[in-house]
């Protein structure tokens, strides 16, 4: 039986690890390569690196980070942040990323998903969705709207419709990132996660809001997610990766327990 996955997301700015609260107020919290290695050794199932470097001339630093991590960490490595073209995706793949996350650029130009799927294979293209709660409207009948540019720009696009479109265009996996919950540690946006997980037949990763082990259990059961993404709760040492996995396992969630 397939295990649920525990994924740690590392936001990287100028080659250093950063953690945001509601997408603003980022601060440096360490060396991404060191963190990645420690999580890997502690049984992490998958790693995501998100490049939040503002200036484009510093983007090559990210390739160095990916390359250094890929030499030491032998679990799937997913990288995103600022991917605008197949060329960007290919650079990251050569540096050692298995999966490529597309986000804002795909909302602006959906063909990017199909182009990446064609070039890298569907299973290597992850559509990362930043979503906020809104009032139900004709444009957003699900009550959830797509936002881009790190949560700054609302797009007037319904999140559920975009998830379906992403699957149709060839995304192999979806990250459902609830920006209302991001960094709050109050729990995932379960309703949204389940809504999307039930609407598509590709794996869904719950993201944003994890603060307690119970939140992960909720995302993987009630939220119907295939994987739970964590950041703050492991980065600051409040919980270890293996501790979270042991908890989930004890609660009857199928996890990989030997590594």
């Amino acid at each position: 039986m397939l295990s649920k996955r525990l994924i740690a997301c590392l936001d990287v700015r100028d080659g250093k690890l950063a953690k945001s609260v509601r997408f603003v107020d980022t601060k440096d919290i360490g060396d991404p390569v060191e963190k990645a290695r420690a999580y890997y050794e502690d049984g992490l199932d998958e790693l995501v690196f998100y490049d939040i470097t503002a200036s484009s001339d510093k983007r090559s630093i990210m390739l160095d980070v990916v390359e250094a991590v890929a030499k030491e960490v032998f679990i799937p490595l997913s990288v995103g942040g600022g991917v605008r073209s197949v060329a960007d995706a290919t650079d990251l793949r050569l540096a050692g990323a298995e999966k490529i996350n597309v986000n804002s650029a795909a909302v602006r130009r959906p063909a990017l998903i199909a182009e990446c799927a064609e070039a890298l294979g569907n299973q290597n293209v992850v559509l990362s969705m930043d979503i906020r709660r809104v009032d139900v409207s004709p444009a957003c009948p699900s009550g959830y709207e797509m936002v881009i540019n790190g949560g700054r720009t609302p797009m007037g696009i319904d999140a559920l419709a975009w998830a379906r479109e992403g699957e149709r265009l060839g995304a192999g996996e979806l990250v459902v990132n609830a920006i209302d919950a991001d960094g709050t540690r109050d729990g995932y946006e379960l309703k949204l996660t389940a809504l999307i997980a039930e609407a598509v037949r590709i794996p869904v990763i719950a993201s944003g809001g994890a603060g307690k082990p119970e939140h992960l259990k909720e995302a993987l059961t009630v939220g119907k997610a295939d994987a739970a993404l964590v950041a703050s709760m492991v980065h600051y040492g409040d919980y270890s990766v293996s501790e979270l996995k042991r908890y989930l396992h004890s609660q009857g969630v199928k996890m990989r327990m030997a590594w």
Binding site: M1, L2, S3, K4, R5, D45, N122, Q123, G172, E173, R201, I202, P203, K224, D226, A227, R256
Partner: peptide, 13 residues
């Protein structure tokens, strides 16, 4: 089973 996704992606025994 509708909850099983294709591709089979992840860790399995």
């Amino acid at each position: 089973q509708p909850e099983l996704k294709v591709p089979h992606m992840g860790w399995n025994a």
